[in-house]
Write a protein that binds this DNA or RNA. Structure first.
Lengths: 213, 213
DNA sequence: GCCCTATTGTTAAAATCTTGACAATAGGGC
DNA sequence: GCCCTATTGTCAAGATTTTAACAATAGGGC
């Protein structure tokens, strides 16, 4: 990373995974080089924005040539941290938790899902994609032993805040939160939260469908 | 709606569901009135932004008093269209589709989930939360008969674009897309797409966890 | 009924984000 | 090896979004 990335704006960051995805596709299709212009057309962006975004991290392109797909893909991957092995746990093995554990390739996204917790006694000893399910009573002890840093929350909103609080004190520094609740971790430095509000997303779609925009 | 809402920015729209959620909580807790200031504190926004956002749609507040929670909640609900009954189908009854069908209260979000489609013969005749699962071969005929307008896509990315194309010609005007693929419907006016990229969200979290922002 | 306080709606300023423009230059054909 | 073309990196302009400021005014206490 050749530039100071301490003040990269969150808008840019949120676009990086999409670049990474498109470049991965191009690479898989054997495309070797691409210009900001063709990429822009493909991604429905302006070439200017792509060049501006990429230049936040350094000059990955060559004048008169464009960008080498494989190089750019791996550079963006490195920026995002796809090879980091953040120890991850998931709490709540209901339908949603189950689907998330199966659906996402955590390892390719920089996270290693190592344990799942639930309150349902019937699930104890079982596993999802060979990741063991433990009783939530064992959570604190597990954290002390294994020091996970990322927690995926697939639990009812009523339980979310207090569980998050105790997870923070157990060392969790990042939450991927699917409960219908906005986690409040302002009191705590260095804790990041991605709230995924599927309900909000659906409501936005409803508005847009009704207003044709 | 007392103001022209044809040029409301998408940033404002995307905040509305969150307002709606917080106001719903306040209402459920028996709070009758709230000022932009207290709401801002609660939601981690500026009071100015809240007033500006709400005023896109008209003056819902009273000087010296604030906003009536129940009124504001229902006004925002009406703007979003929570009472619209958009006929909705879901395609792909795997773990994710299953979880989405169960997890989201479609009716409270302006959509009525009426049918689920899959290719797995073993699922035919079964149902999820009493919504029937049909063979995807029956999709076209179903659309002609029942005229659904919203489609939830929980299918592999390889199948997404061609299925979306045929759904558009069958009358679908809104997609809630969970496949790891950016649906392209530019060629078609009046079709809206909400891409939910869970993988992108996780990658963003990874970046933030690694960079502590 | 009057005055004081709280709080809005609105306007203007500041900040941020996106787009356009273009000089600099690497690469490839001849 | 030179010139022409393609395309970047970057700077400046334009657009949008967010925040601050404040006059206008409704409500409630006395």
């Amino acid at each position: 990373m050749s530039k100071d990335n301490s003040k990269i704006s969150i808008s840019v960051i949120k676009r990086l995974p999409r670049y990474y995805r498109f470049l991965g596709e191009l690479k898989a299709n054997g495309i070797e080089r691409i210009s900001s212009n063709s990429l822009a057309q493909m991604m429905n962006l302006t070439a200017s924005q792509i060049r501006q975004d990429l230049n936040c991290f350094g000059g990955f392109g060559h004048q008169g040539y464009g960008y080498n797909v494989a190089v750019l893909h791996s550079k963006i991957g490195a920026i995002l941290g796809v090879d980091s092995k953040l120890k991850t746990i998931l709490i709540g093995a209901g339908h949603l938790g189950n689907a998330i554990a199966r659906h996402l390739d955590f390892e390719k996204k920089g996270c290693v899902l190592e344990a799942i917790f639930d309150i349902d006694e019937n699930l104890m000893g079982k596993n999802i994609c060979s990741i063991p399910i433990y009783n939530v009573a064992y959570l604190q002890e597990y954290c002390e032993k294994n020091k996970p840093v990322v927690a995926v929350l697939c639990i009812p909103k009523e339980a979310a805040q207090s569980l998050a609080d105790s997870l923070v004190s157990a060392g969790i520094r990042a939450f991927w939160n699917f409960s219908h609740y906005d986690l409040n971790t302002d009191y705590q430095e260095n804790v990041v939260v991605e709230n995924v509000h599927l309900g909000d997303s659906l409501l936005t779609l409803t508005y847009r469908a009704n207003n044709e925009i």
